[in-house]
Design a protein around this nucleic acid. Sequence first.
RNA 1: GCGGGGUUGCCGGAGUGGUCAAACGGGAUAGGUUUAGGCCCUAUUGGCUUAGUGCCUACGCAGGUUCGAGCCCUGUGCCCCGCACCA
Length: 950
Amino acid sequence: MVDFKKLEKKWQNAWEDKSTFKVEVNDKKKFYIAIVYPYMSGLLHVGHLYTYVPSEILMRYKRMQGFNVLAKFGFHCTGSPIVTAAKKVTEKEPSQLESLKKMGIKESQFVDFEKPEHWVDYFSQETLVDLSSIGFSIDARYTFKTTSLNPPYDAFIRWQFNKLKEKGHVKKGKHPVVWCPKCNSPVGDHARSEGEGETPKDFIWVKFRLKDSDLILMAGTTRPDALYGQTHLWIDPNGKYKVVEVNDEKWVVGADTVKKIEEQYASVKIVGDISPKELIGRWAKGPLVDYDVYIVPAWFIDASVGSGIVYSALEDPVDLFELKKIHSNMKMLNEYNLDKDVVAKLKPFPIIKVSGMGDNLGEEIGKEFNITSPDETEKVKAAKDELNKRVFRKGVMQDNCRACSGMTVSECQEYLKEHLVKNGEAIMFYEFTNKVVCRCLTDAIIKMVSDQWFIEYNDPKWKKQAHECLDKMQIFPSETKKQFNYVIDWLNHWACTREFGLGTRLPWDTKWIIESLSDSTIQMAYGTISKYLQHPEDYDFKIDKLNDEFFDYVMLDKGDVNVVEKSTGISKVRLNTMKTDFEYWYPFDFRNSAKDLVQNHLTFCMFNHTAIFPKKHWPKTFMVNGRVMVNNEKMSKSKGNFFTIRELYQAHGADVVRLTAANAGEGINDANYDMAFLETAKKKLSELLDFAQNNYDKGRDEVLSIDNWFESMLNKSVKETTENIENMKFKSAIKTGFLDMQRNLKTYLNRTKNSPNKKMINQFIEVQTKLLAPITPHVCEEIWELIGKEGMVSLAEWPTVDESKIDESLVEIENIFAKVVSDISKVLTLAKITAPKKITLFISESWKYSFFKKLKEELDNTRNVGELIKATLVKGHEKDIPKLIQSILKDSSKLPATVTSQKQEVDALTQELDNLKGKFGAEVEIIKAEDSKEAKSKSASPGKPAILVE
RNA sequence: GCGGGGUUGCCGGAGUGGUCAAACGGGAUAGGUUUAGGCCCUAUUGGCUUAGUGCCUACGCAGGUUCGAGCCCUGUGCCCCGCACCA
């Protein structure tokens, strides 16, 4: 077995020594690949590998096609994960320490990892080691890390935000956030010990003004539409209520809600307690209707839920059945001094029309669910859920609903939410539907963050531009375009600042740090000149005074170079070098990522480009890949199928690991990194090297028809492989550019009895090496050297297709031969003949060939038997033709893909006579059907000789 | 709930109207080679079957369009992913 590791080191050193992948601006056409940078909270793992392989293959492929290729690589460090991880190290959290250990870090070094800055330095360096060890052909001078630890990058991000602000895309706003009062920060899904997936649900609290009083009863609801059908208010007769003063109004709310109001809405002054008894039996006036509503007790109401007060619209089955209870409960009516007549008159009245249902929705659904008593609480609840669903989906507001008449229920809800709040008749209020607990075990709350900065992705004009950008882009796979379209429309305000974590400070409000997904949206532009900004000393300048004018000049062609020279201290010459570089490289031509970045980063990238750059610098191509599984299971440390790239290449070698990654999958579906394939890859690559070494420049000079077949197949492989790469189908490229090629080689050697044509075998080895070079470059360089080629295969020219060498009839003839062999075997089995004496092959009568050709053409026009007969009729065969047409119509597989000729078929099979004789140990005779009296001979058809065994 | 993707042999997965179902990879079984194992080679891997190179059944389920459907349409079951301030 080949020592891959040794060979790989050799070529990695050679690339380094010869600066094979260092790029400079030149006259060639450029191709800029902006690789998504990895997060530096650890070493690269299989997931990264799978995402990076497409970029890496593409950059090598484009280089071989003569492009000047820039591949940007960075190290992402902004946000909270690194800080959190460092904190865990400080706290000596076992799983965190274990994970460091697994990445090869010694215990004595742990103390260094208590500082976030150390993570940034350490992992970006180690990642660079991994990248070169796996043979990625990037130019390391262009790599950079993010955050304020990298001042020029920091300046770039400030510039980006100043630009966004200038264009009016960044604004201050309010937003409800799931918040941990102890950690004093938002609690994302991943940071919860309970309540994953929970989001603040928006309610509105509607104001009901108590008659003959200045008190306002706040009634919470998600169904403002039902206000049109309001009948009365429910209140918890045993609950605790308070009167509080909010913005000069006196509200009655459940006692437990006071704190929530402060967190979400406004400061609260508690006036005092109020007993439900003081309210029951009185009247209140709510919005949207002219009448007053009566206040009624209900035990299903809980003062601590919502606002503690609910208004009733009797289409709701719960309310309806609850009211029935009260109707019949004289004792209670008396206890609360309720007016019997008023209560008796409370009746539902219809406001919503649901198709397929009558007017009295509550009663009807009750019957449907077979509810006989109000105490069947489960049934009642199920009925309520079902009704809500129907109302929301199909409900239309009836004519008695004033401004909302004719609206669908969902439209009406949106309309009322906005209008009631605007008119001061309600407030927005957010609640969880389930409990949320922070990882620190504190109950989370909903907090209204009010001085947060937002990027306004909801701006319709901006959305339009983003759509325009998307329309012009190439998206792989193309189905993903739909998803992008949806995301552009769905994106709303995006909170872009945080109080905690690594990153760049918001230039005009420095208490805030720019959030991690917002800071990386146009950094690909920075990547075009990062070589200079990260290593100014190599280019004789200093960058201690980078400012917005600098980026304006270099990237937007704005401002005066003399002014910029003065303010930055960078010479005009250097400024113009960077400007030229930027203008040469930008925009980026390709960017790929896993599909989870579609709904944020990749879409942000489009938005931000349209805001800041002119159209010519908008992104060109996105490719989205699935997530990677390992051995068909989600990768996870606990399952033991979590691998760093380092572990893999150290154990198997870079090429093997790369080939396995490229073969793991393609398209948007989840891929599978198959550890078993590592062994297959090893074998196949070893064989490849051995074969090239032992067979190059050996063979005969004479040309046989099988050589031409081989050449056809070779050209086909090049064609298909090139197409596959162009379509970002890298797994298919392995199939057509490697596996199929190897199978054809096997067939070829078999058919030539291991005596290949020298020219062909050389061509094969050269083409094979080139096609594989982007995927397994080390082995390919080695082969390239072994066969005595000049220079690096990495810089060799990508093979071109010679269409004239693709002869479909040769391909067909070879298929016929293979089929004949298998048919003979089959016949022998069926006839139970083990040792045949003689095999006769009858080649189809010659008229059938032209008939088949003609028929093939005619089939595109018609399927009508009569017409086909007329069109294809050959004199003298009036009887045969209808029969043939019938059978072909029934099973079109009888018609070969390519119709050859009788002569070709006879010649080809005659050439293989010895081959056939050897295979079956029998005499073989080939006869044209015309020359035989055997009845069987007439059943031969083009591509399918008749077979007679004796 | 909303949006996107998927559903094909023992497994992973090709295949988007006839040329073609199962490419390619993996696994399994039998045979050959081998001291043995591995590598490698051959055959089989939905069912049936005949003096013949075939027939039938199958692409989640049920319908439909078509001369013809894995592919198009309608309905439906199930699985995966995302739904935000988090990288």
